[in-house]
């Protein structure tokens, strides 16, 4: 049985831990709101770009399209772009992303493909290195910027496209958490390069039927070639935004749990403390009474 003094110290330390987790939870809640607003603000651009791509994709058919759209023609070397956070204290988020990435890597390796990793963020580095140490191509560091934004997305995209142009890989997949709510973030694997052929949008075919002729300047193919890298950048930017929102959401939930657990622990310890205090008093009383009776 722990002494009274020990219990008292223990309670004190759990209380201060609870204060920290509570503070972190509130910070995460505030940051989550900001991250969600940023994700919201990025939507119009992505939507419009997807619309334009959709209407162009219908025009450029067959094998003639730009390299980024039709791919290298082979499906042998795969690149996994895994987006992780830089900081911990966000529950199982990073573990889940890494798990999804590893599952995809194993699936590809089982099919006899070669797999390489392009890691973004600090927290994915160690667990992936453990299993695939020789397959990590590059680690992109985002820990020196506060909120990874469009500039980082641009840098990552241009590096990837340069590698693709040099023929270093055939297919790139993007692994990132999709923000559903503060309670759930789904790790998602999505093909990044070659760009999946966008669906021809309903509006595009509607205008085509209405007979409105869209003029292209320069021509469709040149515009598409210009827009494809931009589309890749937007995808990466979207992934970074989803990651930011997911990180804060997961952190909020994890810290909420931690705060609650600390509360439970304090209750339990307090009860134990009171019990041993009372036991000590009872023992003392018995001793006094026994002493008095002996006289």
């Amino acid at each position: 049985m722990a002494s009274l003094k020990e219990l008292k110290n223990r309670i004190k330390s759990v209380k201060s831990t609870q204060k920290i987790t509570k503070a972190k939870q509130m910070v995460a809640a505030a940051k989550l709101r900001r991250a969600q607003a940023a994700a919201e603000a990025a939507r119009p651009y992505a939507e419009r770009l997807a619309k334009v791509m959709g209407s162009l994709a219908g025009k450029v058919r067959g094998e003639s399209g730009p390299l980024l759209l039709r791919g290298t023609g082979s499906n042998q070397r795969h690149m996994l772009v895994v987006v992780n956070t830089d900081k911990g204290l966000c529950g199982g988020l990073n573990a889940n992303i890494v798990k999804a990435a590893k599952a995809k890597a194993r699936e590809l390796i089982a099919q006899g493909k070669t797999v390489e990793f392009y890691l973004v963020g600090r927290k994915g580095r160690a667990p992936i290195k453990r299993d695939f140490a020789d397959r990590i191509n590059k680690h992109f560091d985002t820990s020196n910027v506060r909120d990874p934004g469009f500039e980082e997305a641009e840098t990552i995209a241009s590096e990837l496209i340069a590698m693709f142009d040099q023929g270093k890989f055939d297919v790139a997949h993007l692994v990132y958490p999709q923000f559903k709510s503060a309670l759930s973030q789904d790790p998602t694997v999505q093909q990044l390069i070659p760009v999946p052929r966008p669906e021809e949008t309903a509006t595009a075919s509607a205008t085509a039927q209405a007979g409105a002729v869209v003029e292209y300047e320069p021509d469709e193919e040149a515009i598409l070639a210009e827009l494809l890298p931009r589309y890749v950048r937007t995808q990466l930017f979207g992934a970074l935004l989803e990651l930011a929102a997911s990180e804060q959401g997961a952190s909020m939930t994890a810290m909420d749990n931690a705060t609650r657990n600390a509360g439970d622990l304090i209750n339990k310890l307090t009860i134990q403390y009171n019990r041993s205090r009372q036991a000590a008093i009872t023992t003392e009383l018995i001793e006094i009474i026994a002493g008095a009776e002996a006289l």
């Binding site: 334009v52 162009l56 205008t207 409105a212 002729v213 869209v214 003029e215 292209y216 300047e217 320069p218 040149a222 515009i223 210009e226």
Partner: peptide, 19 residues
């Protein structure tokens, strides 16, 4: 400032896409 020269757009312009 389009890639193939500047162009002005007024209301009711014909559909166009340009870099």
């Amino acid at each position: 400032p389009g890639t193939e020269g500047e162009f002005g757009v007024l209301g009711g312009h014909a559909p166009l896409m340009s870099t």
